[in-house]
Design a protein around this nucleic acid. Structure first.
Lengths: 243, 243
DNA sequence: TTTCATTATATGGTATGCCAGAAACCACCG
DNA sequence: CGGTGGTTTCTGGCATACCATATAATGAAA
């Protein structure tokens, strides 16, 4: 950055210029590999891969044309997605978007329960009262009967509530793994999972959880979160049909 | 399987053919990418990356020569390792083996505690009595005072005990994530973590865990496993120095 | 002698071309 | 008419060449 201003620039000049264009962070132009990775991940995420007859096969050359990059960075991105479990690369056979089985989904929810319950325990140990109090804003919104008409909004708020607990735990790794799981489950997040009745009971659960966190009752918070998520597990096991 | 033998084939024909050439499995020649991935992962695993002055930078061309493959499959393998968090690829700067910070190690142990305690709970729900009884063989070995002289053996048996619980839970995903964590922690598994005193107390813990599993006491098994692993966490926090 | 600018080089990023294997297609034969 | 064997094509695997940037080396000026 200095070179651009020549040797005649003074501190004053610099300060002025700095005041003018402010933002320094510098646009980090990521590699084509990572940008392709993000783009592919997003594309797969918004794809309704569980619909019957959905096209699960990816064509390298076609994709490289669509993204406007060569096959090399594209393949590196695909290798990463394979590692992440989003696609499966069958040598000489093709590249396929992975459709999780119901059993795998249930395992994910189980892991989620384990991690988030641990997160809740951590929250009671490390979060400030103010931080915990902030959770109220994510729960109380739904006190009104507005639930009935805002199911889509509920779904998002629900996710934010759980994400908040994970965030307050301070454990980056739990957040990371949880996000990874969410990526997989996103495609299945059919609204049917969150029908009215569940929403109502869910809110009661959430209130209890917040209360346990506020009273720093780690054991109880952990148990409530676990049971709450395992309820979802049971619900999915019972009512969601895949495969 | 039926179509291949046409309409004239009898049960006898099939049995004969099957008896003749037997072996079908076919040697699965993996791609260079995946083999390079495995090789690199193993190489990094056996590397003492936490020693001061350890060379953490990887040279693409040098590696491609050593492995005898071109840079393309090598880079795809590296992309996967990056996704897994074992290496960090700094664009135009270099490829570096990731050295986990102490805080990150502690987070891993925390996640481990969460997952294995959930696994223990699952074991009480799904494992057979026989399977649980099998755990005794992994614990009783150390009844004798042989511990004193077999610390290295203890370390392995310890790992196998915990792996067995995860396996008996039937949850593949927990096993998968746990293995991933183990890959990272392996390099730190300095024998100092497992000194005599800890070993003795550890065995007591293990016996209690087995007993809880045998009596199908899910709550207790979960708690014991969690506390056991959190003890390790505290121990590492207190005595292991990194960074 | 030190410092800064310029140039050289090394290293990762990307594009492209060729190769091998798998699947689809087709023709020939029973 | 069906099935089998061969041929073509399509697609992913791999190697290589080139490009861009970061860093090291070098030299000139203060």
């Amino acid at each position: 950055m200095p070179a651009a201003f020549g040797q005649g620039s003074t501190e004053a000049d610099f300060a002025m210029i700095k005041a003018q264009l402010e933002i320094q962070p510098i646009e980090e132009v990521q590699s084509l590999k990572s940008r392709t990775y993000e783009a592919l991940k997003a594309a797969i995420g918004t794809m309704k891969i569980y619909d019957a007859g959905a096209e699960l096969r990816l064509d390298e050359r076609a994709l490289s044309l669509q993204f406007g990059v060569s096959r090399t960075p594209l393949r590196e991105a695909l290798a990463q997605l394979e590692q992440e479990g989003l696609v499966r690369i069958a040598p000489r056979r093709g590249i396929f978007i992975v459709r999780k089985t119901k059993a795998e989904i249930l395992e994910m929810i189980t892991v989620w329960a384990a991690l988030e319950s641990m997160a809740a325990r951590l929250v009671t140990e490390v979060a400030s009262d103010a931080e915990i109090a902030g959770l109220h804003s994510l729960v109380d919104i739904f006190d009104s009967a507005a639930i009935e008409n805002h199911m889509s909004g509920y779904s998002d708020a629900n996710i934010r509530f759980h994400a908040a607990i994970v965030a307050l735990s301070g454990c980056k790794l739990i957040a990371e793994i949880t996000n990874g799981l969410f990526t997989h489950v996103r495609a299945i997040r059919q609204r049917t999972i969150f029908e009215k009745d569940r929403a109502r009971r869910s809110i009661v659960d959430h209130k209890e959880i917040v209360e346990a966190l506020e009273t720093r009752n780690g054991e109880r918070a952990e148990r409530l979160v676990r049971e709450h998520t395992l309820k979802l597990r049971q619900h999915v096991e019972q009512f969601v049909q895949l495969d």
